[in-house]
Design a protein around this nucleic acid. Structure first.
Length: 110
DNA sequence: TCTGTGACCGCGG
DNA sequence: ACCGCGGCCACAG
């Protein structure tokens, strides 16, 4: 691979990451979005895993609502599960059995 | 280089 | 509803 191509990949990577941050910022309290959904909205539908990595790389003191991201099945899969559940419950209290009621709290609204 | 490992997902069975 | 599997791909050892 030529050097130029690597640079382009790099740039696209950063831009994707930025779009994810922006989208994350828009999720209102009391609603959740899945990793895959976020990836799709950020124009890279196959990159759900990458979204996970992006969230993992957020600084500990980030003010972005990372806790409003759950798996497509509504399950909390983050390593900080306890913290995430607490935050979600503080916002709406609809976490049961490590799972969210996606029907009523999905974002964006379908 | 090669391999294993994820804050994932959709499709079967 | 719950696995297992393959696809996805950045990253560490």
């Amino acid at each position: 691979m030529r050097a130029g191509e690597a640079l382009v990949e790099d740039r696209e990577q950063r831009e994707f990451r930025e779009r994810v941050w922006l989208l994350l910022h828009r999720i209102p309290p009391g609603r959740v979005c899945s990793y895959g959904q976020l990836a799709a909205l950020a124009d890279r539908p196959e990159q759900a895993r990458l979204v996970g990595r992006i969230l993992a790389a957020l600084p500990a003191d980030s003010r972005l609502p990372w806790h409003r991201v759950v798996s497509a099945s509504g399950r909390i899969t983050s390593p900080a599960a306890t913290e995430q559940r607490q935050r979600l419950e503080r916002e709406g209290g609809w976490v049961w059995d490590g799972r969210i009621d996606l029907r009523n709290h999905r974002w964006p609204t379908s």
